[in-house]
Amino acid sequence: MPRLPQTPSQTVGPYFAYGLTSQQYGYPFPSLNDGMMIDDSIEGERITIRGRVFDGLEESIPDAMIELWQADARGQYLQTGLGRQLLFGRQGTGSLESREFVFQTIKPGSSAGQAPVIHVSVFMRGQLSHSYTRIYFAEEVALNSRDEVLLSVPPERRSTLLVGRSVIHGMPVYHFDIHMQGEKETVFFDV
């Protein structure tokens, strides 16, 4: 059977908020996912992930949309096909004055011996095809040092994927800023 051509990508545009992140932006359409990626059924250490997206002029971008996907604390990806999807999150950068995305989740476990990781998809006006990157945890020194994906990244660029831990009001917080271009350009993968 001949292969069918893939349907081309197009930009998410400037007006995705009421369709894809409606509750976060205060539109009257219930969202299936937002920044809260867990409920009481999910075990593991509660963490916050927040950050901003910067363009090539180092301006923070107010109309990007970030999606996170991750394993649970045992390193298992949870796909029940029941109800809403946990451990998946979606946030726009246009609802806070600070232009941050903010996710509440748990720290993922190691999966198949690899370093704990969070998958990140990045969409915005001005991106005709979306970008894909990954969050690694700086404190996972041993696992990071032998993670095959991290090792495939030139050493001088690995730091763009690493998040450091800080504790704010007793809650572990990780900052993950995404730089689309320039000196600090985040590593993006051809997924």
Partner: peptide, 24 residues
């Protein structure tokens, strides 16, 4: 000012990562 300027890094998936959101 929004397009990545450096080449994408090829990513080989392992089975555990071939997953994504599924809804009921």
């Amino acid at each position: 000012y929004r397009a990545p300027s450096k080449p994408l890094i090829p990513l080989k998936h392992r089975l555990g990562e071939l997953s994504g959101p599924v809804y009921g």
